[in-house]
């Protein structure tokens, strides 16, 4: 219903321990502020889904919120590894994190199936790779019409999907543009959805490539200017590449990360 809530209220109302949640965004429009709110509220045992978990999932993992990660590519783009994620996978610190690993094409199909209310998606993928040996959610399927062998992956339907967008109107409809990723699928596949926005406008302008989500397809809208930082919101902010570089030494050190985390829980990061 596109209800306007504060971010604190929205996360508190919809995100619970043990749930499956997704904070989507493809380099662009990553809902960092919402991730920090999940950390502040101390959620635990979450299964987190994302095609390209970058810093915000490194932060959630390092903060001990995550029990399982479903993903396609986990790195700090252009910089290197996600060191909190690696510490969890390699050394079970601060807690063990189970990994369910896909390709981007496979996860995209899982999102599409989830959004469409179908039980599984189909793709030409994974053939000859080791992924199918380690990931149970990859299976062979034959086309009932041609007999062709294809790959099936199950739908993703998180409890809560969270995205960041440029604008909402006063009715709670949401609009975003630029690189649009899988955010539409994320919102439609999730049982509940939270959208943080840069600002509220009286009327949306017509924009090439703009995506509009009707208010009734979204649960909560929270106005959080700069809520994608250090990611960016096209026409509102630039990607803070310096922060992505600065994250590397923070995430490499458990102590430096603990200092960063203290800043978030005190509401200053």
């Amino acid at each position: 219903m596109g209800e306007f809530l504060s971010l604190q209220e929205a996360v508190s109302r919809y995100v619970e321990d043990g749930q499956t949640i997704a904070l989507e965004g493809f380099t662009h429009l990553i809902p960092f502020a919402a991730g920090h709110e999940v950390i502040r509220q101390g959620r635990r045992d979450l299964t987190v889904v994302r095609m390209t978990p970058d810093l915000v999932y490194d932060q959630l993992i390092g903060a001990g919120c995550v029990r399982k990660l479903i993903f396609g590519w986990g790195g700090n783009p252009g910089v290197g590894s996600l060191h909190r994620m690696r510490d969890a996978v390699e050394n079970q610190y601060p807690c063990p994190v189970e990994v369910e690993e896909h390709s981007h094409a496979g996860l995209a199909e899982r999102w599409r199936a989830g959004a469409a209310g179908l039980p599984f998606g189909v793709l030409r993928g994974y053939v000859g790779t080791s992924l199918a040996d380690h990931t149970k959610t990859i299976a062979a399927v034959s086309c009932p019409f041609t007999g062709e062998e294809l790959t099936a992956v199950p739908a993703i339907n998180p409890d809560v999907g969270v995205i960041h967008a440029q604008q909402a109107d006063r009715d709670g409809n949401v609009m975003y543009w630029g690189i649009t990723g899988v955010q539409k699928e994320c919102v439609l596949a999730s049982r509940h959805s939270i959208v943080t926005v840069e600002e509220v406008v009286d009327e949306f302008a017509v924009r090439t490539g703009g995506v509009v989500l009707p208010a009734w397809a979204v649960d909560a809208v929270a106005v959080v200017p700069g809520g994608a930082h250090p990611s960016y919101a096209h026409d509102y902010s630039d990607r803070d590449n310096a922060f992505y570089a600065a994250w590397d030494p923070i995430a490499r050190s458990r102590d430096a990360f603990a200092d960063w985390l203290a800043g978030v829980t005190e509401g200053i990061a």
């Binding site: 380099t27 999102w111 599409r112 793709l123 630029g178 995506v211």
Partner: peptide, 28 residues
């Protein structure tokens, strides 16, 4: 581009499509 989702890629593109579409309609 600093990353695969750098704004300079979408600004200069002939068309921008979603990630589901790029992998299914265009790649596969």
């Amino acid at each position: 581009p600093a990353s695969i989702g750098d704004g300079v890629l979408s600004e200069s593109a002939v068309a921008n499509v979603g990630v589901v579409e790029i992998f299914s309609y265009w790649l596969q």
